Simulated assay, not measured.
Amino acid sequence: MKIETVYFGEIEIEESKLLAFNHGLPGFQDEKQFALLDLEGNPAFKILQSTKAIELAFVITNPFLIETGYEFKLDEQTVEQLNINKSEDVSVWSIVTLKEPFEQSTLNLKAPIVLNLNNKQGKQISLNDSNYHTKHSIKGGEHHASPNTETR
């Protein structure tokens, strides 16, 4: 099928590679189908592109590349919703907020995107762990704090 994308114009993608977000993403509940696209020349990042809304695309990355101590336990509801049977089927991503210069970019460790690669189901979850933030530095090990936020 052909889809329009923010970064690549019109592209052809196999329907078997599309990801289903049955509950949409927070703030985008009507967006239920996305394509995970490679960012040519930069394997650390991918584009999560809506198949319906051309302007809706997120730059994402593997959070473990930046924050090696990142860890959380999936709740039973998410495991059931995504029909996860084994941990090898799970892939975790974080949304990146790009800034200029790039070193000021941040990633959202508070609300990772969890994918079941086996059945192509996905969900963005919200973690209760106060050690993780929505504006974690892309340089790792720190987050950008507002004046009322305590840094670690």
Score class of each variant (00 low, 15 high):
M1K: 06
I3C: 13
G9L: 07
E12N: 15
I13L: 13
E14R: 05
E15A: 14
S16W: 07
S16T: 15
L18F: 00
F21D: 03
L25D: 02
P26N: 07
F28N: 09
Q29N: 05
D30Q: 05
Q33P: 01
L36W: 13
L36V: 12
L37A: 07
D38Q: 12
G41W: 01
I47Y: 15
S50M: 04
T51C: 13
A53V: 15
F58N: 01
N62H: 14
Y70T: 04
Y70H: 05
D75L: 05
V79W: 02
Q81V: 07
Q81E: 03
N85M: 04
K86A: 13
S87V: 12
V90C: 08
S94C: 10
S94H: 06
V96R: 02
T97L: 06
E100K: 11
E100F: 13
E103F: 09
L107P: 05
L107M: 12
N108Y: 00
L109S: 03
L109P: 02
L109T: 10
L117C: 13
N119E: 08
K120F: 11
G122P: 03
I125C: 12
I125E: 08
N128R: 09
D129T: 14
Y132T: 06
Y132A: 11
T134L: 10
H136C: 07
S137T: 14
I138M: 10
G140A: 02
E142P: 06
H143I: 12
P147M: 13
N148F: 14
T149P: 02
T151W: 14
T151S: 13
R152A: 08
R152L: 11
